[in-house]
């Protein structure tokens, strides 16, 4: 607000800037520290002697002859075959986002254009479903999936993640479609289109900003999930997050903690890139829900 009337006293400016600076440090330091530390050996990252060892890589120099080492990454990606988990994550995330958006666009469009009482109730039921803790749903799947031999496969996890994602996707796309003027598809229908043709030829070309934003959140849900993938996938099918959890089980051996640290940094990198490119969409998506309330 570049308004002279709003010019604040010096102390207010100082405190508010100091506070924001403090928050920026709190928000970013853990990531920078772990990124830096992932190129050190365990004796530096968890230093018994002096925490500054992690900065200069004192033990790393003694153990490997250099102040940086890729041993953690080599161990995680090659020795522990983390690349398998990465491929599984790619498959799960891609299909979850694709199917979520397909179902969600159709449903969200119908909810936005219906105006009937039952559309309102469907949205309310979706809100209740959104509140269900994922692990309670998983405890409902486990026994039937064992019985029907559905347990352990990637497609099972994908369809479960799609379903868990639906309430949120519906809400979000519903509010985006409300913003597209009704006249567009109404006039197409006057010209003789069926509802689906109107959707296909008039709405689909203009809906992409909303769909991309919703897709980002579907991506985050599928990528970040632990409850579903850790319980429903067999060991050879597991994705990155349960794989990292698996590394922790064997931390007793020297060096294995650094495998987990390297894997954690590897799994964080795509999220960084995502925020870098789609910051505007993420912010607008978070606020879209709030404004529509």
């Amino acid at each position: 607000m570049p308004n002279p009337a709003h010019r604040a006293s010096r102390s207010v400016v100082f405190f508010s800037s100091a506070f924001v600076l403090l928050w920026v440090i709190i928000a970013s330091f853990p990531f920078l520290w772990t990124l830096w530390g992932s190129f050190k050996v365990q004796a530096d990252f968890f230093s018994k002697a002096d925490w500054r060892y992690a900065l200069w890589g004192t033990r790393t120099l003694i153990e490997t002859g250099d102040t940086f080492t890729g041993a953690g990454y080599a161990g995680a990606w090659i020795q522990e075959e983390f690349w398998r988990a990465a491929i599984n994550t790619l498959v799960v995330v891609f299909f979850t986002v694709l199917i979520s958006l397909t179902l969600g666009t159709l449903g969200g469009y119908a909810l936005a254009r219906s105006g009937q009482k039952y559309a309102f109730w469907l949205l309310m039921i979706a809100l209740i479903f959104r509140a269900m803790p994922h692990i309670t749903l998983v405890s409902g799947y486990l026994l039937p999936f064992f019985e029907w031999n559905l347990w352990g496969h990637l497609p099972t996890s994908i369809i479960v993640l799609v379903a868990i994602n639906q309430p949120f996707t519906l809400w979000m796309l519903h509010s985006f479609f409300l913003n597209i003027p009704k006249d567009l598809d109404e006039s197409a229908k006057v010209d003789g289109c069926t509802q689906f043709q109107a959707f296909r030829h008039v709405i689909i070309p203009v809906m992409w900003p909303g769909v991309i934003t919703t897709g980002l959140f579907s991506f985050l849900l599928a990528y970040n999930d632990f409850a579903v993938t850790s319980m429903l996938l067999s060991e050879e099918n597991r994705t990155m997050v349960p794989a990292i959890y698996g590394f922790l089980g064997s931390t007793q051996e020297e060096g294995n903690v650094m495998f987990a640290v390297a894997a954690v940094v590897s799994a964080t990198a795509p999220l960084f890139v995502l925020v870098m490119f789609f910051q505007r969409q993420i912010v607008s998506g978070l606020t879209a829900g709030a404004v529509k309330g």
Binding site: F31, L220, F226, I244, L271, V275, I282
Partner: peptide
């Protein structure tokens, strides 16, 4: 945004 989009377990 980073603390929010990070995988909770990670």
């Amino acid at each position: 945004l980073l603390p929010m989009i990070i995988t909770p377990l990670i």
